[in-house]
């Protein structure tokens, strides 16, 4: 069997905000053609990790290699070349409200490619058709429901035919039926375009539907990594807590608690 080369390699990644350490040394290999889900509780560092991957924020230490290029230390020109082949579905959609849905989808193509406007117009309609929004090109984002906005954002994330699609909490704020529709859409896109899809979420239902492999982040570290089956069978207490939806037990160190109340900064 030919050994697959990772499309994303993360090594000893650390991030701190002031004295607060968010990521404490993340190591991950993510492969082409897989849907890789980064799972974790709120505040575990998963969104921070995603921001590092798409170049929105620089880590404190460690390395991220995407398609063989060190993206942490790449110059602006090199990073821009990599970013062009990466799509990002933001949690809040991040559509430009002053532009129509079609203009939003067309924007990256107008900005970054030599394509003729006629080609861009057809591509825009194709992407909207892919996400089930054909006929909505002239609508303004404010005229769309939450689920439709998410689909429109997905169409924009796909505009440049990315090799890697990053999705930040794709089902956040959506009702369960609309959310599962987004998950199915992600599955169809992956099957057709053979993309690597990296999804950050805390929604277990979504994880079990779309993930090929799962990484559970806990306390800024990778606590578990494996397939859906391995995740379900894991005896790791944190994985079990996640699977069984058990709340944290209230554990307070009295001395640390008092100190935290007395500290000046």
């Amino acid at each position: 069997m030919v050994e697959k080369k990772p499309i994303i390699q993360i090594r000893r990644l650390t991030t701190s905000y002031g004295r607060h350490q968010i990521l404490r040394g993340i190591d991950l290999d993510i492969y082409p053609d897989e849907t890789f889900v980064i799972l974790g509780r709120s505040g575990c560092g998963k969104s921070t990790l995603l921001r590092h991957l798409v170049g929105l924020e620089k880590p404190t230490g460690g390395s991220i290699t995407i398609k063989g290029m060190d993206v942490v230390n790449a110059d602006e020109h090199e990073r821009a070349a990599i970013l062009k082949k990466m799509g990002m579905l933001f949690q809040n959609g991040a559509m430009f409200n002053s532009m129509s849905v079609g203009e939003n989808v067309a924007l990256p193509l107008r900005e970054h490619t030599p394509l003729d406007p006629a080609t861009i117009q057809i591509m825009t309609r194709l992407k909207l058709e892919l996400v089930g929004l054909s006929g909505f090109a002239d609508y303004m984002p404010a005229q769309l429901s939450g689920g439709m906005r998410k689909r429109a954002s997905l169409a924009r994330a796909l505009a440049m035919d990315p090799d890697i699609l990053f999705c930040d909490e794709p089902s956040a704020g959506l009702d369960p039926i609309v959310a599962v529709g987004i998950d199915h859409l992600i599955l169809r896109l992956k099957a057709a375009f053979k993309m690597c899809i990296v999804v950050v979420t805390h929604e277990l239902a979504s994880v079990f539907l779309i993930a090929d492999r799962i990484a559970l982040l806990d306390g800024g570290l990778v606590r578990f990594i494996g397939t859906r089956q391995e995740f379900t069978a894991s005896t790791d207490p944190r994985v079990r807590q996640f699977l069984e939806r058990r709340p944290d037990e209230d554990q307070i160190d009295p001395e640390m608690y008092v100190n935290s109340l007395l500290e000046n900064d």
Partner: peptide, 11 residues
């Protein structure tokens, strides 16, 4: 062949 190729053929 990406979607720009498809769009070119459609045109």
């Amino acid at each position: 062949l990406d979607s720009s190729g498809l769009a070119t053929l459609i045109e």
